[in-house]
Design a protein around this nucleic acid. Sequence first.
DNA 1: CAAAGCGGAGAACGAACGTTCTCCGCCGAT
DNA 2: ATCGGCGGAGAACGTTCGTTCTCCGCTTTG
Lengths: 190, 190
Amino acid sequence: MTLDTETAQRQVLDAADALFYERGVQAVGMDAIRSASGVSLKRLYQLFPSKDRLIEAYLDRRDQLWKSMLAEHVDAATDPRERILAVFEFLHTWFLQRDYRGCAFINSFGELGTVSPRVAELAMQHKEGFRQALGELAAAAGAPDPDRLADHLILLSEGAITRSAISGTADPATRAREAAVLLLDASLPA
Amino acid sequence: MTLDTETAQRQVLDAADALFYERGVQAVGMDAIRSASGVSLKRLYQLFPSKDRLIEAYLDRRDQLWKSMLAEHVDAATDPRERILAVFEFLHTWFLQRDYRGCAFINSFGELGTVSPRVAELAMQHKEGFRQALGELAAAAGAPDPDRLADHLILLSEGAITRSAISGTADPATRAREAAVLLLDASLPA
DNA sequence: CAAAGCGGAGAACGAACGTTCTCCGCCGAT
DNA sequence: ATCGGCGGAGAACGTTCGTTCTCCGCTTTG
């Protein structure tokens, strides 16, 4: 069964995503990805010349997927204030996924942050992208200091992400939304 | 050079703490701990019969140390509101440590949470302890719903912990404190 | 001084890792 | 039909890991 490059790549990334996310990047061997993807080792190494490259591709795809899911939730609302709160509803649906295991970037950073500058960089870029998105939402809502509000909101979000992972419940998203409402009341002009 | 049990144990835990925290638990071999601690492998395995046990001991000690450092900062203030804000000053001094790498429990959970129930449990207990401490501070400050305020404050704290690790700056502690002030203004009776 | 046992240094072992290589069967071109 | 090259399956290689074992010197006791 010969696969064209595109499907082989997709199958490898699907398998890598599931395994890396569930068990962590270091605990998953290339052999496990070979078995799960059905792509031979030779081809796997043609597509991704090293495990490091595969990890990068895994994080890249997570970043894109995450951003598009966030945008989807936010764009379902029109009121600027509701668009901010939609972020926390997105988090809530994310936390409810059966295989939710926290943020892949935080987890990968914890594993490889000190030894792989590339992973550290990707984690920083991912979080910076999120912060900028929040900044734009805050500015659109008329916040007098959008950067500061964005910082406050991202703290709630990141806190909810890790707390939800460790506690195993989606509740932190609800609590984060509550706190966000209080912060918006305090920071947004009436 | 023969060491008594107590010093050997302390040297091993000192080495394990530094190495596990810096590089992650999976990336550090028992040999590295042997070299760094100066304790022979044989003795090391007498003190900690497996790497899993050593990881548990590492997390246990981190938990105790963290709690006592937090209590130290909090107890330096007397005003109930200041005692809550002292939490964020504690975080700030923590983030400024040169080797700061985020929360050992979050990092270990990311690495082993799915495969080691013990690590998952220790992470949950550690975070639950923090949440309870915040709950007591909130109650002492007269919060009408201390549990809820504690949840909001812990989200800010956890968010600051991971953001500081990834960004490499202590700034998130300042921002978290700002947001905490807003939440206290909204939640505490005048 | 002799015998016995404890601890230290590090070799050894079996497994697992990332990566490469070998072999074999299948395909299109002549 | 034959040849050449590509892809798949998985063996192989060198390293590293967690854990155990061997050897040797020191100390303590009679």
